[in-house]
Design a protein around this nucleic acid. Structure first.
Lengths: 253, 253
DNA sequence: TCGGATAATTTTGTATACAATAATTTTTGC
DNA sequence: GCAAAAATTATTGTATACAAAATTATCCGA
């Protein structure tokens, strides 16, 4: 399997503090960071994959300077590991990492829920409600991927409703790292049903602006999600190795 | 006022994922990141200060390449703002930022407290106890700077006792950003007394391994700290402007 | 003298060059 | 034929070069 090798730099955006460029043009490394971040988080670049500069430079059509800047940033985000004189690889996600990340995610979302109850507007609530029922539809139809996508969106909207940029940034960063565990496939029917039930309670707590209740539901919801992921990690065979080559991304089983 | 201009690169360390270098030598940009991060967090480089590449390169004795890499990393940490074609400046810390950061800090420390109660060893507890009573001594003697320093250390030790690297990293990053508000000076006597009282309760909760109680004390403790900082920010005159020059850091009132 | 336009200078963003380390291949000795 | 050593190649880390943008200085007119 091979994907197109021209990763031309469209207008991806970064949340890194970069002021508006006076003349339209933007920093190259930022584009590359956004691109590679997506590729890593979405699993297009597998865990452990080497990231040779020359190849990536050719694919992005840039020189080594901005590419290397991007690598340093991704390393500081924990998505990439740098080994001096031996370059960069996509970082690994161990079961221990998952075990660490979820409690933190639970705290962040719990806070988000509490703040969201104080600040959410009727419009934002209506949006979340719509997403919720759309998600329920996907659940009925057993459309797992669509379900998960909306699920993420809803959690993101709740965090957004908390209107706290620091919280949003930390949540986004951690969410990206957690997403890499890609547990989606192996969710048991019972776990799924339970998650849907919790989402109903989440909406209810939001509607009644019951901050403490929402906080506690979200914390429990995340605890269950953590258990789901760990079950999945145990069952799943180790992820396939992909590598970056001149011809694009190729699976090497 | 001027400080020495040779910021030679000793062995500062980064928590960025960088494997051991096979041959002792380490990545230059990492050293610079650590150095500049400290300078920004400790307030040696004032909020809003421009960071001209040429000057910093001379001071660190390196070329622009690793310096610029360091700038990108600091930008991704939120300590520096990049404006295309106009370079880097130390980011500002507004009252709104403080208002955002503290609730998140409250959540993180609250989680840390809960986990610490589950995992803390007798040895770690003894260490914190020693630090606590040392801190009380500084309080009695009205040694504010020493008090604050130990205070930070204790909070850090509690987070460390939670034994969750993700949590530790996020806490450290946020702690650095909060420290920049440097509220220390204007803490009222009443606030100080209250904080000391809470620290007594913190130690008590740790000793009895009462996770929920510690979590709630810490959350309240951070809420009060937030109020202290905001009082202080209102009272304080805007911070003096320092700039980076060939001769070191110079105050320009 | 002041304001605005133009020119010189500085600073930045990206590309390339060069040196050092690591990986690979070839050679050599047994 | 195989293992170890040597030589070759590739890759990385840092420094420099060059072009584009922004800043500063200069000039000119009123």
């Amino acid at each position: 399997m091979t994907v197109p090798d021209d990763l031309s730099l469209q207008d991806n955006y970064t949340e890194t503090p970069v002021n508006e460029p006076p003349h339209g043009r933007v920093l190259l490394h930022g584009e590359v960071v956004a691109s590679l971040r997506t590729m890593i988080v979405e699993g297009e670049l597998a865990t452990g994959a080497r990231l040779p500069e020359k190849v990536l430079c050719e694919q992005f059509g840039i020189s080594r300077t901005p590419l290397r800047e991007a690598m340093r940033v991704l390393a500081s985000e924990g998505l990439v590991v740098l080994t001096p004189n031996r370059g960069a690889t996509v970082s690994e996600v161990t079961a221990d990492d998952v075990d660490e990340m979820f409690p933190v995610m639970g705290s962040l979302e719990s806070l988000a829920g509490e703040m969201a109850c104080e600040r959410i507007t009727e419009d934002q609530l209506a949006e979340i409600r719509a997403l919720h029922y759309q998600m329920l539809l996907h659940y009925r139809r057993r459309e797992l991927a669509d379900y998960f996508s909306l699920n993420q969106t809803i959690h993101g909207k709740i965090v957004g409703a908390a209107a706290n940029p620091t919280l949003t940034a930390m949540h986004a960063s951690l969410e990206g790292r957690i997403r890499r565990a890609r547990y989606m496939a192996n969710t048991s029917e019972a776990r799924w049903e339970q998650a849907v039930k919790e989402h109903g309670e989440i909406l209810e707590a939001l509607e009644t602006r019951d901050g403490p209740r929402l906080a506690s539901i979200l914390k429990q919801h995340l605890k269950n999600k953590c258990a789901t992921v760990k079950e999945s990690l145990l069952k799943t065979s180790p992820p396939m190795k992909t590598s970056v080559t001149r011809n694009g991304l190729s699976s090497v089983t």
